[in-house]
């Protein structure tokens, strides 16, 4: 099964397009002013703002481009920059179930509900996160899958749990296996000390909705500035028509599907008639 993306592949062609975009960004960046307090401004752009799910959708890649703009008089940072991008998909409430042996068979005996957690989460960086800043700060900024807050329903309360909670770990593992949660500390490529590029993998299973892209710029382990943008995953054409009809007009949709079954059966009995 092909898992290659259709949109903004990280192919040589895509990279060429990226450079053109980066050139545009550089101009854009010099025109628009960032926060006055920061010495650097961060300008980012995405290869697309709409990922379309059509009938041949098998996943996609959204390419993130960025440029760091320095004030004219500012001396360049000696240690260079680190970029950490966090992509957060639509929020979902998910029940995680645990199987155990009961009366000789394996059934779901225990469950935890994760409230409003991202359906999709990608944390991409320029180098291993623990080289960028100490663990304590990573945790505070929720960088890395181990540090992301995943609120659970615990009795009447909603709270995050300790990092080695088995449900939390299983949840992260399952999400990662389905490529819905991605932690890739080297996915962001620095094309020059101030230009970077990263590709955000969108698996076929990624649900429709708004995906927020939060890019943080670090220098010497300190947060310099950040930039947010977003893209939307949406069904189009036939896929959209069917999905909308199924939910909004369930009864009509069901009747049409049943009629389709009858017509198929009837046609078959005509085509293959042997008397």
């Amino acid at each position: 099964m092909s898992r290659r993306g259709r949109i903004g592949r990280a192919s040589p062609a895509g990279r060429g397009r990226g450079l053109v975009l980066l050139a545009c960004l550089a101009i854009l960046g010099s025109l628009s002013g960032g926060p006055a307090a920061a010495a650097e401004r961060l300008v980012t752009s995405l290869s697309t703002h709409r990922v379309l799910i059509n009938s041949v959708f098998t996943g996609a890649e959204v390419v993130l481009f960025g440029a760091v703009e320095r004030d004219a008089g500012e001396a360049p940072r000696r240690a260079g920059y680190d970029v950490i991008a966090t992509v957060t998909g639509p929020r979902q409430t998910l029940k995680t179930l645990r199987k155990d042996r009961m009366l000789g068979i394996w059934i779901n005996v225990d469950s935890r509900t994760f409230i409003d957690v991202p359906a999709y989460l990608a944390i991409l960086g320029t180098r291993p996160f623990d080289q960028v800043m100490p663990e304590e700060r990573l945790r505070r900024l929720q960088i890395g899958l181990g540090n992301v807050v995943l609120p659970q329903q615990i009795g009447p309360d909603i709270a995050d749990v300790v990092r080695d909670d088995p449900f939390r770990q299983a949840f992260l593992r399952l999400k990662t296996e389905r490529r819905l949660y991605v932690e890739d500390p080297t996915a962001v490529t620095l094309l020059s000390p101030t230009l970077f590029q990263a590709s955000i993998p969108v698996p076929a299973e990624a649900p429709v909705g708004i995906y927020e892209v939060d890019v943080k710029l670090f220098a010497d382990g300190a947060l310099v500035t950040r930039s947010t943008s977003a893209f939307e995953i949406t069904k189009v054409g036939f896929e959209r028509f069917v999905a909308t009809a199924a939910v909004d007009h369930g009864l009509v949709y069901g009747i049409v599907t049943a009629m389709m079954a009858l017509v198929t059966g009837w046609l078959a009995s005509i085509v293959f008639r042997r008397d």
Partner: peptide, 21 residues
């Protein structure tokens, strides 16, 4: 089965017409 199709579609919205076809 035809009525199960209609009822499943109307209540649970889970009938995939393309897969079915």
């Amino acid at each position: 089965m035809a009525s199960a199709t209609v009822l499943h579609a109307a209540t649970n919205h889970l009938v995939d017409a393309l897969l079915a076809l």
